[in-house]
């Protein structure tokens, strides 16, 4: 049974978007190929050569191993940021004095470049997996705290009053009213943090790791294997697109299916 205002998914629209995306991709590869005809191969290798290299890395090389290594590090740093950031953001949001006291910390943390975090990490942890994990953590943490904090400010006082009339305990009110109200804010913060985390993890790996996509990127560039640099770049972009389309977007659609669709 459908509610009167619910609109069915429009498949023709989706088909057109897919067509547009494909056209854009073809156009890009074409431009790349034309440009590569007039440039030396160590400056801009053509798409055919990069595809060949990518295939080699995937079949005989360490493509998936390194993608996996980097992904695990990003997830590890991200997970620690969530474990600290969510209770931290709720605490700062629920206690005004505490929030006012710690308020300057977040913008200051945001101004520190990920390269600086990487250098500190190398000093403290050396060439170890902890280095990229630490850098991801320090980048993701302020984003998650800020968003969760904002989420606590957005909790509707009327809903809290409703919980009072239902005689909900503090824990129950937290769980039934606060958490669902904060969730959209947490989700947008987490998404941002994950994207940032992935990018800075590569920086950290080029500076202070002996494995992972970032390490292999630097290695290829040191050896002037430009086609490999391109291959790794494409591999990591494809992975992020798959995560976005395959996991994050459907998850968001499911979690926030209660929202009124504002697109027209």
């Amino acid at each position: 049974m459908r509610a009167p205002t619910e609109t069915p998914v429009k498949t023709p629209m989706r088909g057109r978007v897919a067509l547009q995306r494909t056209a854009l991709l073809v156009l890009f590869i074409l431009a790349w190929w034309v440009a590569s005809l007039f440039t030396p191969v160590y400056v801009l290798p053509g798409p055919d050569r990069v595809a060949q290299r990518l295939w080699m890395l995937a079949t005989e090389g360490d493509l998936f191993g390194n993608l996996f290594t980097t992904l695990v590090r990003v997830l590890a740093g991200f997970a620690v940021a969530v474990v600290i950031g969510v209770p931290g953001g709720i605490l700062l949001g629920s206690n005004r004095a505490l929030g006012a006291f710690f308020e300057p910390v977040l913008p200051v943390m945001n101004t520190v470049s990920s390269a600086i975090w990487a250098i500190f990490a190398i000093i403290w942890f050396g060439l170890s997996p902890l280095t990229p994990i630490f850098v991801v953590l320090m980048t993701a943490l302020p984003l998650i705290i800020t968003n969760v904090w904002q989420g606590t400010q957005a909790v509707n006082a009327d809903f809290v009053e409703l919980a009072h009339t239902l005689r909900f305990s503090r824990m129950r009110t937290l769980w039934k009213i606060y958490v669902p109200s904060i969730l959209p804010y947490f989700f947008s913060g987490a998404r941002l943090a994950f994207g940032f985390g992935w990018r800075v993890s590569l920086v950290a790996e080029t500076l202070g790791a002996s494995s992972g996509v970032g390490y292999r990127l630097r290695q290829a560039s040191d050896l002037i294997q430009t086609d490999q640099v391109f291959a790794w770049t494409i591999a990591q972009i494809v992975m992020m697109v798959i995560i976005e389309i395959g996991i994050l977007a459907p998850l968001e659609r499911h979690l926030f299916r209660w929202r009124r669709d504002v697109r027209t």
Binding site: F159, E161, L162, L166, F168, I177, P180, L183, W258
Partner: peptide, 26 residues
């Protein structure tokens, strides 16, 4: 039972789950 001036339904819950809310005290 208490009924407010506004309907005060939780937007993230379905109609049914909004009604069950009043029974969710354990």
């Amino acid at each position: 039972g208490y009924m407010f001036q506004d309907d005060r339904l939780l937007p993230w819950r379905t109609a049914l789950d909004n009604v069950t809310l009043a029974l969710e005290t354990g």
